[in-house]
Amino acid sequence: MESSSSASPEDTNTVRLLAKGVLELYEPPLATINTHLKELTEKQETVQLMLTSERRKLEDLQNDASLDALLADIATNREKLTSISSTMMNLHKRVQSLQTRAANIEKAAKSRATGVGRPTSS
């Protein structure tokens, strides 16, 4: 039996021819597949960039919507505050008027009380 390290020139030539045949058979489809993979990878990166850009735009729109909602809340709260302030001013004026009226009634009551106890001359 022969040792595997001592290959005959005929076996070596056969191996070379087989390798060349396999390369000729599979190299063009592999090159085409490689080209297609590169194209797909580039397209995928482009799509990813577009999606990222659209996501940022959407987030910006949502942030703008949130800001608009906050500004609307500010306007609503300002209207409420103005209404409350006006109501409080009206109540304050009414209290002052009632206090003045109460003081006048008290004075009139005192005047009557002191007028009733005086002797009348006849």
Rank of each mutant, 00 (worst) to 15 (best):
P9F: 13
S86P: 01
R56H: 11
L67V: 11
M88H: 09
V95I: 14
S85H: 15
T52E: 15
R16L: 12
T120V: 14
K110W: 06
L30M: 07
Q62A: 04
I33G: 07
I105K: 10
L98D: 00
T100C: 01
A31C: 08
G21A: 09
S121G: 13
S5I: 13
L91C: 03
G21Q: 11
I33N: 13
Q44C: 06
R55L: 05
I84C: 08
S121R: 13
E79P: 00
V15Y: 03
A113L: 03
Q99T: 03
K57A: 13
K57G: 01
A102L: 01
T14C: 13
T35W: 14
S86K: 05
P119R: 15
S86H: 07
R55V: 08
A69M: 02
A109T: 15
T82I: 07
S85I: 09
Q99F: 00
I105L: 13
T14V: 14
K43V: 03
A113K: 02
Q62G: 01
R94T: 09
L49Y: 00
T114S: 11
D60C: 11
D68G: 05
E79K: 04
G21T: 11
N90L: 11
L30F: 00
Q96H: 07
E45W: 08
K93N: 05
E24T: 07
T32K: 09
E45I: 06
E24Q: 01
L37F: 03
L91A: 06
H36N: 10
H36A: 10
A75V: 09
R94M: 05
A65F: 09
E42H: 08
E24M: 04
P28M: 00
S5A: 15
K57W: 01
E79I: 04
V95W: 02
P29Q: 00
S85M: 02
D64P: 00
R101E: 15
K107S: 14
G21M: 12
A103N: 08
A75H: 13
E2F: 09
T32F: 07
H92R: 01
E42I: 05
S86W: 03
A19S: 09
R94V: 03
M1W: 07
Q48F: 14
L25N: 12
L25I: 08
E54F: 12
K20Y: 10
S83P: 00
I33V: 08
